[in-house]
Design a protein around this nucleic acid. Structure first.
Lengths: 225, 225
DNA sequence: ACATTATTTCAGTATATTCTGAATCACTAT
DNA sequence: ATAGTGATTCAGAATATACTGAAATAATGT
């Protein structure tokens, strides 16, 4: 009888551990994070996460077996997405816990940003004040699908990849404040470096849409066209 | 520059993965769950989780290194506890996600309970109705420290280990409804089996204090004496 | 000092996981 | 049919993890 209870408990904790195993690997966490920004194909994921294709496919299989993501095949492409919104929340709870409990996270971020000085970030309230004064252009440098899913009110969408080509669309007489996904997204950082090198007055928003939204600040969604 | 960004991301996701690795093992999850009920020594944990001592110590070390638990030495005993309340919430979020996404969890539970039929559980509202009618004794069969930390209002504390000795304290003319920690805790199950074998009218509450509390039902805390 | 008890560490074996390149599969377009 | 592309699977090497029994630490009581 006691051993039946033990078997039951072991079986239950083994199930819980399936989720743990799924998120026990840095690459899989990065894939989850990317999928949290929106659906993507295997190739796109591999490229964005800097992984081999076979490897990516295998990690996605692991995530699929833990039911954290779902795959849908159209033509020769397979599109992966988070299995549901709860998975996104779960990922953010790992992130929050890591930030709270692992001093290394803050350390690593601090050192990384320090090495790229001259990029003083602008805080949320600071940004709002600047927007009220009207002397600022808010720039969203994420891929445009992500912009469409939700962006800061009044932001201009110029994906980082197109930025160099589209510099003429940006004002030279106003401050530009670039932002991207979240605290660990480096797109805005690269954008600001590029803009500054081209003589623009550019800053980066301290945190991205994720944090913005999480704190209850307003987010605009593009109308379906 | 791009490779510096990659190194940064990798470093960050590696940190997140420390938490994932910590919860990627069934035994460690069980230890976390137990610690969520209150602090315990290594030996108590080993015994309750059915693990070897060396093994338990090593798992605890892993949890400590992920900063999920903390150890405090008094005399020759080392007492482990959750590092903070956020860790408890994190554990519960894994549990919730597993219940939502992994059909196997429900399956395993269902089969386990089915094998022990005749133990029709009582629901929360059902219990409240019975309590209002006054014809029921609510029995908390967890260890008494856990009872002290928080229990259902009006419940009687008789830890499972003492139950056989203390049968005389229980009414033979009223229903007894036993409960324990949560959905996967088997103490109440064992208590009900013992009580029924001894001729009592006993049922088990469908879920434990954890769920009770999570749904906003009232919990009493014992006064310090 | 010495034995006892709780815990940790060590060493070794068995098992899992991760990543890579090659092979295969599944679709599309020619 | 056939070539081309995206994705998956396979096989193997390198590495990491889990568990065990034995040895080492550390505190306690005699």
């Amino acid at each position: 009888m006691a051993s039946r209870n033990r078997r039951f408990k072991t079986a239950i904790y083994e199930q819980f551990a399936r989720l743990g195993k799924a998120i026990s690997n840095p690459s899989r966490l990065e894939l989850l994070d990317l999928l949290g920004q929106g659906p993507r194909t295997v190739e796109a994921l591999a490229q964005e996460a800097g992984l081999g294709l076979a490897n990516t496919s295998q990690h996605l299989k692991a995530l699929r077996e833990a039911r954290l993501v779902e795959a849908e095949k159209n033509g020769q492409y397979v599109t992966y997405r988070l299995a549901d919104e709860q998975v996104g929340r779960f990922f953010r709870s790992i992130q929050t816990l890591a930030e709270a409990r692992l001093a290394e996270v803050g350390e690593i971020t601090r050192r990384f940003l320090e090495a790229r000085q001259g990029l003083q970030p602008v805080g949320r309230e600071q940004l709002l004040a600047k927007v009220r004064d009207g002397a600022v252009t808010v720039l969203d440098v994420r891929p445009s699908e992500e912009f469409r899913t939700g962006h800061l009110p009044g932001a201009l969408s110029v994906p980082l990849k197109e930025l160099e080509r589209r510099l003429s669309e940006l004002p030279r007489d106003r401050e530009i404040i670039a932002y991207c996904r979240g605290r660990y997204c480096v797109l805005a950082l690269e954008a600001v470096e590029l803009l500054q090198a081209q003589g623009f007055t550019a800053f980066r928003l301290e945190d991205g849409v994720q944090d913005w939204q999480a704190r209850g600040y307003p987010v605009m969604v593009e109308e379906r066209s």
